[in-house]
Amino acid sequence: MTAKCLLLVLFKVIYAVIDFGALEFNLCYSGDNKFSVLVGRTIEQCMEECIARDYCKALNFRTKMKICELFATTSSEHFSPGECLYADKTNLQPSSTQNVCKRGEVQETSGCVIKECISITIPEHGRVLGNMRNVGKDIRYTCEHGYKVKNNVPTPVAECLETGLWSVNVECVNMAYTWATWTGWSQCSVSCGGGQRTRTRSCTIPIQGIDDVQCLQDDPVNHPGIESETCNHPTCEAPTIGKFCTVDADCIETEGMCIGGRCFCNPLYRYNVTLQNCIKVCEILTDEFDVFEHVAIVGYNDIQYEMPAASVDVCIKECISNTNCLSIDRYSKFGILMCNLSQVSRDMILDALPGHLFDYDVSSIYTRKCK
């Protein structure tokens, strides 16, 4: 008696209601409609799983790994030799049992229980990635080139819920985008000697079911959303930061300004030695102050000189009320608290005229914080 005959006899003794003669040996089905993969099953259990599902049409039992694969349809185009037992559902249904469970449900002792999500809506101009339909499993949607998921959802994932329904369905829509106008050029990266500046533009998708939204360009080479060019080619002049001046135009640095006869960076900027330019470091000056002990500004605290004050809060209030005040020199003179209001900050002095910062044990600098 051949090995195949012995195996069939054994199967018939153990599980007589199933026709094991319907099994095809060393034949694997490889269709793309696989909806469940069950690990650690016997061939009997695999056949029971298929019989319990009205929508199961065929099965593979991979003998080496004891894996049961269930399929929703069969096609003669998807067979190949392999270490499988294959069976068509039409030869497995026991004559004594009639399946009364709905699609997605499996007959168990307690009754019909939802185990899988069956209906998958494949989007037009798109496809579904993955074929696992068990409750709790995920599938992914993707759209063809030139199409995008409606409402701009990034790589949507659908989960098979306990209700037997998928958590999301997807629609792929045409990316008929148009380009908006360019923004203005950005500030040059250097004030002279050849730097870079950029400009950008966005694209909109005025298509059905979607409000006009910004999108990322699909073809950044032929349809760039950003352009750059060189700027400020002339040879650099010597930096003027800290040098003598009479008007702002005498200060060649970007955002340079003339204060008290010297070139400083704008209060929102700091001087960058490498770029030889004033670089923006914050957006606004707040009404809060950083405190630096045992140091004083000398020569640029001339907004209001030696203002007697009962407390530091009085000094701060005076500075905030003066639009030109950036810092306060606070010190004690003959036992009286004095304040000098300055139109430059400690950082501006450090960048342009560090020699105008002096160490004084009895002094402190209050400089407006940058945000």
Rank of each mutant, 00 (worst) to 15 (best):
K243F: 00
Y147F: 15
C28Q: 12
Q45L: 06
G260K: 07
M338F: 08
I328L: 12
T97C: 10
E48S: 12
E108K: 15
K57R: 12
D211T: 05
E318H: 14
A249N: 10
L285Q: 11
E49N: 13
K66R: 15
L10R: 13
S30D: 14
K148H: 06
C46Q: 06
R201D: 01
L165R: 11
K333R: 14
T274H: 01
D138N: 14
S345G: 13
Q98M: 08
I252R: 13
Y300P: 02
V13T: 11
C265Y: 04
T42R: 04
V17D: 12
N26A: 14
H294G: 00
Y15K: 12
A52C: 08
V344H: 02
P354S: 07
Q343A: 11
Y271T: 02
P156Q: 07
P224E: 03
C231K: 00
N322F: 03
N152V: 11
F35R: 06
L6W: 08
C46T: 11
Q217N: 05
N266L: 07
I14L: 15
P267V: 08
P234W: 09
E229H: 03
I303L: 15
A22F: 07
K137S: 15
H294L: 02
C160W: 07
T183I: 04
A87I: 14
C117Q: 01
P220S: 02
E288Y: 09
S202Q: 04
R133M: 12
C68F: 00
R199L: 03
Q98Y: 11
D359V: 14
R330I: 15
S189L: 06
E306M: 12
K243I: 00
C245M: 04
S363Y: 15
W166V: 01
V106C: 07
H223E: 03
N91W: 07
G194F: 05
M257T: 12
G335H: 07
D347C: 06
Y269R: 13
C231A: 01
L27M: 10
N131R: 11
R199W: 03
D88K: 08
S167G: 09
K369A: 11
S345M: 04
T274P: 00
R41M: 12
I336M: 10
G261R: 06
Y331M: 01
G193H: 06
D313W: 02
L285P: 03
I210E: 02
R197N: 09
C46W: 07
V298K: 09
E77W: 07
R197P: 03
V173F: 05
V17I: 12
G31S: 06
T230Q: 08
T178Q: 03
N222H: 06
V314E: 15
I67E: 14
G184K: 10
P308Y: 01
S202V: 02
L59I: 15
L23A: 13
G184T: 09
P239V: 02
N324H: 10
P220A: 02
